[in-house]
């Protein structure tokens, strides 16, 4: 077990595994997403109150779920880096942050498109939307840290500190935004997927699974690139490129 873990966090080994598994994982994720979304859009029943519009749920919910999960995994990675100084953890954070930002944006965008017909407005300052917007700002702030230091180790350290504090703070921010919201306006407008009919739930779950697979695949690819950037002068990298020739 320990040996397996050590191998996984060694750059050459991870690079090799990712190189082999990427095409399969990528194709699998694309087909699962297509299955979930097409099923959801064309074959699942129409919602009573919202009609056809609700179908954007098959993009919105997976994107929002992925956006949050990425942040939580980044928090775990930041703790790992701060305690054990495992470089793979910082590679993970730096590769995943832009993906997180993109999916948070996607969640906000699909939310706006959904909100227009159902609530009559593109944007409401509702608790969930507001805290998702803050999540996006947090992602962007972390990305802006990437180029603010000259030394690699400083960037890794700074990013993990910010990710960790953000991780501790995010639940508090969410809570306070909810209090702010209940006092100011529409606490009523919440969208929880807990009581969805089975016929709609199954394609949604498939779509969510597909999004997670996709993020895993693309994340691995991004980590490979990040590893190459860092280890460009190492022998194992040179050997890989010689083999290719």
């Amino acid at each position: 077990m320990r040996q397996f873990f050590n191998q996984l966090i060694s750059f050459p080994y991870f690079f090799k595994i990712a190189q082999i598994s990427f095409p399969y994982l990528f194709l699998l994720s694309i087909s699962v997403i297509l299955l979930g979304v097409l099923w959801g859009v064309f074959f699942s029943p129409v919602d009573v109150t919202q009609g056809e519009v609700y179908r954007i749920i098959y993009l919105h919910v997976p994107a929002a779920s992925v956006a949050q999960s990425i942040y939580y995994t980044m928090v775990i990675a930041s703790v790992t880096y701060l305690i054990w100084r495992i470089k793979m953890a910082s590679v993970f954070m730096i590769s995943m942050a832009p993906l997180g930002a993109i999916f948070t944006f996607l969640a906000l965008f699909t939310g706006a498109v959904w909100g227009q017909p159902t609530w009559g407005t593109w944007w409401v300052w509702d608790a969930r939307l507001t805290s998702t917007l803050i999540l996006l700002i947090l992602y962007l702030a972390i990305i802006s840290l990437f180029s603010s230091f000259d030394r690699r180790a400083s960037i890794d350290q700074a990013v993990s500190i910010v990710v960790l504090i953000g991780g501790i703070n995010l639940p508090i921010i969410k809570l306070s935004v909810e209090w702010w919201n209940t006092l100011h306006q529409s606490a009523s407008i919440t969208l929880s997927g807990s009581s969805i009919d089975n016929e709609m739930l199954i394609p949604l779950l498939i779509s969510i699974l597909g999004f997670y697979l996709y993020v895993t695949a693309i994340g691995m690819r991004r980590m490979q690139v990040e590893i190459l950037k860092r280890e460009i002068s190492h022998n194992w990298v040179k050997r890989i490129f010689q083999e290719k020739k």
């Binding site: 700002i137 947090l138 702030a141 504090i165 306070s176 702010w180």
Partner: peptide
């Protein structure tokens, strides 16, 4: 500007609780 833009979102709970 990076430093303060990172920190402002984290200050939000203080602002919200104070205003409330």
């Amino acid at each position: 500007i990076v430093g303060s833009s990172i920190v402002i979102p984290m200050c939000l709970p203080a602002l919200i609780l104070g205003i409330l």
